[in-house]
C-alpha cells in the first residue's frame, strides 16, 4: 500500500471506530449512512478542505454542509480528529446539554459546524448560496454538500441543482453518498433516483463517478473538481455500501437508525481494526 493512502486508511479506521463508540454511548443514531461516507469525508477533511481548526471562522475557509445531517457522527469524528474539539467530547453525542446534537446544530456552538442540518433536501441550496457568496467576494473558497441518495427524492434538491447550474457555480461540489438504502428499504424499491449520472448531466452539471470506498478514485475526483476550469457545478456520485466496514450492518436497512449493543459494538470494533478499507 502506498504510504500516502495508508495514512487515510488508518484515519478511516479511527473515524469508523469513533462512529461505533459514539452510537453505542448514545444508545441511538444512524450507523449505516455514517459508515458509508467515511472515505469520502476523510479525504475531504484531511486532504482537500481549506480550513483551520484553531480558527474555525477563518474568512478564507471552504465550507461543508452535511445535508444528510443524520450522519453527523462522521462529521463530529472528522472535526474532533482535525482538532476542532477534544475527542473525549465525542462520547456526549445525543446527550442532554451536549454540543454534539442528534443532528448538526450551529446553536450548540460546536466549532466547525456551519449550519444546522438534518431536515433532508435543504443542504444543497445552502451550499449553493455559500458558493454565490464566495463569488461575490471574489474568494477562492469552495462549498461542499454531502447528500444521500434517498434525499434526492426531495424536490428542493432539483430546485438547487437548477439554480447552481444557472449561476455557473463552479466552486460548488455536491457529493452523493449513493448507498442505495433509505429508512424503509432500498431506494430503488421506494422511489428510484437513478440514473443519477445522466440526470445531473442533463441538468448541466459536471459529473464524476467514483467508488466511494477507494481513495485513489476519490482523490482523483476532488483533484478534478479543484483543477477543472469549467463554468458548471460538480457532483461526485460515489457508489458506496451502507454500513461499510461492519459486515453485519452492510446493506441492511435495519441499521439505518439503530445503535449497536455492547456485544455488537465489540464485534464491529474488532472487524474495523482488522480490515484495511479504502484501497
Amino acid at each position: 500500500m502506498e504510504i500516502n493512502i495508508k495514512k487515510f486508511v488508518e484515519l478511516g479506521k479511527t473515524v469508523r471506530k469513533d462512529i461505533i463508540n459514539m452510537l453505542f454511548c448514545a444508545g441511538s443514531g444512524h450507523p449505516g449512512g455514517s459508515l458509508s461516507c467515511v472515505e469520502l469525508m476523510v479525504a475531504l477533511y484531511f486532504k482537500y478542505l481549506k480550513h483551520h481548526s484553531e480558527n474555525p471562522e477563518w474568512s478564507e475557509r471552504d465550507m461543508v454542509v452535511f445535508s444528510k445531517g443524520h450522519v453527523c457522527p462522521t462529521l463530529y469524528s472528522c472535526l474532533a480528529r482535525s482538532g476542532y474539539f477534544p475527542t473525549d467530547e465525542l462520547d456526549t453525542l445525543r446527550q442532554s446539554c451536549s454540543r454534539l446534537q442528534g443532528h448538526p446544530s450551529s446553536v450548540s456552538e460546536l466549532p466547525g459546524v456551519e449550519v444546522a442540518t438534518g431536515s433532508l433536501g435543504q443542504g444543497l441550496s445552502i451550499a449553493s448560496g455559500m458558493a454565490i457568496g464566495f463569488k461575490l467576494d471574489k474568494k477562492d473558497s469552495k462549498a461542499y454538500a454531502l447528500l444521500g441518495d434517498g434525499e434526492l427524492q426531495s424536490g428542493q434538491i432539483w430546485e438547487a441543482v437548477m439554480t447552481a447550474a444557472q449561476f455557473k457555480l463552479n466552486n460548488l461540489c455536491a457529493i452523493v453518498d449513493n448507498n442505495k438504502i433509505q429508512i424503509d428499504g432500498f431506494t430503488e424499491d421506494i422511489k428510484s433516483v437513478e440514473p443519477l449520472a445522466s440526470k445531473f448531466k442533463s441538468f448541466g452539471w459536471h459529473v464524476l463517478e467514483v467508488d466511494g470506498h477507494k481513495y485513489s478514485e476519490i482523490f482523483a475526483a476532488y483533484d478534478e473538481f479543484l483543477a477543472a476550469n469549467l463554468d458548471k457545478p460538480t457532483v461526485i456520485i460515489a457508489e458506496t455500501i451502507k454500513g461499510k466496514g461492519v459486515s453485519f450492518m452492510e446493506n441492511k436497512a435495519g441499521w439505518h437508525g439503530k445503535a449497536p449493543n455492547s456485544e455488537e459494538k465489540e464485534l464491529a470494533l474488532q472487524e474495523i481494526e482488522e480490515k484495511d478499507l479504502g484501497v
Binding site: S128, G133, T163
Partner: peptide, 24 residues
Amino acid sequence: RFFNVGISEQDLICEAAGLSLTGK
C-alpha cells in the same frame, strides 16, 4: 447582487441562508 431563482421558494430560502453564512 440580485438573484432570481425562479419558482422555487424552498430553494430560495436556503440559498439566502447560504449567502448569509458568507456575511451577506
